Computed example of a mutant assay.
Amino acid sequence: MRRVRLRVLGLAAGAVLLSAPPFAGLAFAQTPMDDPLDARDAKRMDRMEKVVRELRDIVFHAQKTGAPVVVQPADTDARIAEQASKITDLEQTLTKLNGTLEAATHELDQAQRDNSALKNQLKALSDRLSADEQKMAEAAAAAPPPAPPPPPEASPQPADNKAAAADAFAKARQLMLSGDYDAAEGAFSSYVTTYPDTTKTPEARYWWGKTLMVRGDNIKAAGAFIGAIRGWPQTAWAPDAVVELSRALVGVKKPADACETLAELKRRYPKAPAAVTTRAAAVRAQAKCA
């Protein structure tokens, strides 16, 4: 209703402008009003003046060109209609995006379920394979005893024999320090065979076991370490030999024996270096000791 009144007022004002001199409308628009207007009345007056100017331009244009007067729809209504159309398009786009997102979410949930089922199948297969490997290892090798018996008394060695033994041990140790583990393994093995009863024989067995562990021969390495710690010698390398024996036992699928050996480490060598106890804890976790 308000728009109709404004348009009527606009048409009336336009008629007045047509009958008056060309500058009469301009004089009217520029004449200040005595009464103050609030913000709403000022906006209404602005719209009325705009309509009057538009009507005047249309009539003047028609007078000059002789073309029929065509009243275009209000610019505000056209913009509102345009924005409404854009909003409708946006709503349709959002609806499509929501549908696509729901489909992708469903596919992701399905993929996660499939992945979980596949993990369970792989775990079951891995458990079966581990059980089969353990049975094969138990059938292939006997379990070494965790607690070695006391060492035999070393027989006296001639002076020249002692010198040859010392020289052979030094050469084998140098080969290992240089990184030639294959040659060091042969040298320590030869030393143990040639000099089975010297004071250096237990240590030679220890280093021999180290070279065997590098090659992955856990069964022979376990035997070498057992010979090295027989009698639980109080030497600097003995605690590490116990840890290495435990590692070899884990390698041949004997975790229970490894746990027993690690228990003896704490009892036999309570002052073992921190580096050795740290490695022992790692082996204990690997063997799943209680």
Rank of each mutant, 00 (worst) to 15 (best):
59 V>I: 12
87 I>F: 07
115 N>F: 11
65 T>I: 00
124 A>Y: 02
43 K>V: 08
79 R>E: 15
139 A>F: 09
125 L>P: 02
74 A>W: 01
131 A>I: 06
37 L>D: 01
72 Q>E: 15
115 N>R: 14
134 Q>T: 15
91 E>K: 13
123 K>R: 12
112 Q>S: 10
124 A>Q: 10
76 T>Q: 08
122 L>D: 07
145 P>R: 03
96 K>A: 15
93 T>Y: 01
129 L>F: 05
118 L>P: 03
64 K>R: 11
42 A>N: 03
57 D>H: 11
39 A>M: 04
41 D>R: 08
145 P>F: 02
37 L>T: 00
115 N>G: 14
131 A>R: 11
132 D>E: 15
37 L>M: 07
43 K>P: 01
122 L>R: 07
64 K>Y: 04
82 E>C: 02
141 A>D: 06
136 M>F: 13
116 S>R: 06
142 A>F: 07
90 L>G: 05
131 A>F: 07
67 A>S: 07
101 L>S: 13
74 A>K: 01
122 L>E: 09
50 K>S: 12
84 A>E: 14
46 D>G: 10
149 P>F: 05
106 H>N: 13
114 D>M: 03
48 M>K: 09
97 L>G: 06
41 D>M: 06
58 I>F: 04
105 T>D: 12
150 P>S: 01
63 Q>D: 09
88 T>P: 02
130 S>C: 08
110 Q>F: 02
61 H>Q: 10
132 D>F: 08
38 D>W: 00
123 K>A: 15
71 V>Y: 06
74 A>L: 08
56 R>S: 09
84 A>G: 10
150 P>N: 01
52 V>R: 01
84 A>N: 13
75 D>W: 07
66 G>T: 00
114 D>E: 13
40 R>P: 00
36 P>L: 02
97 L>M: 11
101 L>G: 09
135 K>C: 03
111 A>M: 09
42 A>P: 00
122 L>N: 07
144 P>H: 00
148 P>C: 00
